[in-house]
């Protein structure tokens, strides 16, 4: 699959040592266009959209912020904590400005699983459909997000 020059530039910015030391592609050898296309298909298979996933992530972040630095219960099934992390990151897709990195941890107590993400993930998923490459320590897969955050399919 042919990659546009814009995506090629973003892929370069995602390599280790450009924006972050580890980069965003992990051990994935696919081009960015393939990573995006395959995750996009996966999201569609799950009956979701990137916007719905990002909105749910944002919802838990906002609920977690109400705890003012402490773990909070959200409904009967979730525990959420939000912690500030000093520092901001530039968007590898070249959008102006910097994105903050508040750490969100959502535990689904009903199934006993947790997921960690940041404002940066919410932006990358909502605006660019990017969940990071396979092998990246910070990748969160669409399937994992659907399961832990209990996201309903768009039907």
């Amino acid at each position: 699959m042919k990659q546009s020059p814009q995506l090629g530039k973003a892929e370069e910015a995602m390599k280790p040592g450009v924006i972050t030391k580890e980069g965003f592609l992990g051990t994935d050898v696919r081009h960015l266009v393939e990573i995006l296309t395959e995750d996009d298909a996966e999201v569609a298979r799950l009956g979701l959209t990137h916007e719905v996933v990002a909105d749910r992530m944002k919802y838990f972040k906002e609920e977690g912020l109400k705890g003012e630095g402490l773990l909070v219960d959200v409904g009967d099934d979730f525990e959420v904590s939000v912690e500030s992390v000093r520092g901001k990151l530039a968007c590898p897709f070249g959008e102006p400005g910097l994105i903050s990195k508040s750490n969100v941890r959502v535990t689904n107590t009903r199934i006993g699983k947790a997921v960690n993400y940041t404002d940066f993930h919410i932006h990358m998923i909502g605006e660019h459909g990017f969940y990071q490459g396979k092998g990246s320590p910070y990748r969160v897969s669409p399937k994992e997000l659907k399961e832990v955050l209990a996201i309903n399919s768009e039907e």
Partner: peptide
């Protein structure tokens, strides 16, 4: 003394 977002709330 707290995280940035908590400070805003305080």
């Amino acid at each position: 003394c707290a995280g940035e977002r908590v400070i805003e709330s305080y």
